[in-house]
């Protein structure tokens, strides 16, 4: 039995209304109204500290906004919604167990019938199945974290700078798996500050700057002629604060 329930409407369309997040009186996410169409590969960009990670956590319901709301196909984000989504963090959080046990953990959770070995084979880690997960290289660990997230059959997959500290081969492997998942119908929301990566992956770009939504533009238009000063400076390689 998969956790996907066919009776529920799909979750792929997103809407946020006046979404704000404050810590100790400081606004880190400031009044963001954003609507995303279903089934795009959306990339969130912005300089360090822009609020990308916080925004992603809000969308996934990991943290509660100070004001405003997050809707997935009209449903306010809650436990049930989050259960149909998955997230890959910047630093992979792997269980202190074998590679295979990390996959089995989520398979048991969802009572889902995927075979662990098939999953590991797909990402080229079958030979390491019985090794401690934390003995893998960082790139392999991130691939495992990604495969584990996909093993939950999420309708929406969030990735928070998953390749920020990886070598080129590992980056490519991650991007290929993400692209494949997107083709298979998983809605992807991918955070990166790597312009090259955004160009390779994005169908649309959401640009955040200092907690504001600077712009939300189809990828081609964004890279040709961004609408916001912030994004323009960023793409020019100017330092953006």
């Amino acid at each position: 039995m998969s956790k996907k329930s066919s009776s529920l409407p799909p979750l792929s369309a997103l809407q946020t209304t006046s979404l704000s997040l404050e810590y100790d009186g400081v606004r880190y996410i400031d009044d963001i109204d954003l609507s995303l169409e279903p089934n795009r590969l959306s990339v969130i960009m912005g300089p360090n500290g822009a609020g990308k990670s916080l925004f992603l956590r809000l969308l996934h319901g990991l943290i509660i906004p100070s004001a405003g709301q997050v809707f997935w196909n009209g449903v306010p984000v809650d436990d049930a919604v989050r259960q149909r989504q998955a997230m890959v963090f910047q630093r992979p959080v792997l269980l202190r167990r074998s590679v295979a046990a990390n996959i089995d953990f989520v398979l048991n959770l969802n009572g889902n019938r995927h075979r662990c070995n098939d999953i590991l084979d797909n990402i080229g880690l079958l030979d390491f199945a019985n090794q401690p997960a934390r003995s893998l290289s960082v790139g392999e660990q991130q691939r495992l974290a990604l495969a584990r997230a996909l093993a939950t059959e999420p309708e929406v997959l969030f990735l928070d700078e998953p390749t920020a500290s990886l070598d080129p081969a590992s980056i490519l492997a991650i991007e290929e798996i993400v692209t494949q998942a997107h083709k298979n119908g998983t809605r992807i929301i991918f955070v990166t500050h790597d312009i090259g990566q955004a160009k390779r992956l994005a169908e649309e770009v959401i640009f955040l700057h200092q907690g504001h939504l600077a712009e939300h533009t189809p990828a081609q238009a964004f890279f040709n002629a961004p609408k916001s000063k912030a994004a323009e400076a960023y793409l020019d390689g100017r330092i953006l604060l």
Partner: peptide, 20 residues
């Protein structure tokens, strides 16, 4: 945070912590 993302039930969290 990973467990919250995966919606791991409380009892499974406890047994995972004890095991790991």
């Amino acid at each position: 945070e990973q467990f919250l993302s995966l919606s791991v039930p409380r009892r499974a969290v406890i047994s995972a912590l004890l095991w790991d």
